[in-house]
Design a protein around this nucleic acid. Structure first.
Lengths: 140, 140
DNA sequence: GTAACTGCAAAATGTTTGCAACGAT
DNA sequence: ATCGTTGCAAACATTTTGCAGTTAC
């Protein structure tokens, strides 16, 4: 099933409504394909002359995160950063402290070790993320 | 050298002053031995009838983080959480979404993989953290 | 028709900052 | 004596919330 369908299911399950705002927010996020903030989203809607209020953006992002379609990242800045995750493999982040560049990477062996660590402690993981802060190739 | 000495060095190097507040904040943190918030600290000082202003706590924590004695964590709540790291091995965190419990764990193999991933991308790591959110043994 | 949703403005939260008095060097 | 520090209150930035009107079901 595609993301739109998955979101619709989630809404139905939670007795929430399938509104024009919610649909267009998900569409916009799918089109974005990168990390984004609430501000980024609001700008895009404004530029399209189809403004959506910040309150609705915050509320809808909450649902999208809960439905598992979007991941919320704490990259240490003040604003929260989000990314669309549906049909993306899980990945980790390296963040450049100088230029802010975000390098994504995945490592199956690392995943395996994480799962093993959880099992050993009888901890049931829901989501996990590794962040490595430092300096990228061009910012040495 | 102990933490107090290391902090004093840092202050001297940065031409900052060795004040009573800064000394007592570091002492308090060493005594705490767990994760703590700015609020936790302020409470402890208030209870001791030796109040320290929030502004000073924020400013001093900034210095402690920069000096490498304290680590600032983004556990996803709104408040920042800190931990004393001097003479503690690096470790990762599992955080229970239900009871808030924080399980610390370390895995040398995981560390090795992380270093390898950085080398492969010519990324110079400064600090890194893995957070696994989920449910702990007692909150299944 | 009912209950959820939206936008707005206000409130809440966590953190930072300008300033005047104070204190370390 | 100089210049960083403190506490306070105000400013700030982000996120949440109460409410009145609107819309999905």
């Amino acid at each position: 099933m595609d993301a739109t369908g998955k979101f619709r299911d989630y809404l139905k399950r939670k007795q929430l409504r399938d509104t024009a705002e919610r649909r267009s927010i998900l569409l916009e996020i799918k089109a974005l394909r990168t990390h984004f903030t609430i501000d980024d989203l609001q700008d895009r809607f404004r530029r399209k002359r189809r403004p959506v209020s910040r309150a609705t953006l915050y509320r809808t992002l909450g649902h999208l995160v809960e439905s598992g379609l979007v991941r919320k990242l704490d990259l240490g800045q003040r604003e929260a950063v989000y990314e669309f995750t549906f049909d993306h493999e899980h990945h980790e982040h390296m963040i450049c402290l100088n230029c802010g560049k975000v390098i994504e990477f995945a490592d199956p062996e690392m995943e395996r070790l994480q799962e093993q660590a959880c099992r050993a402690r009888r901890f049931r993981p829901v989501r996990h993320f590794l962040q490595i802060l430092g300096y990228c190739r061009s910012c040495k």
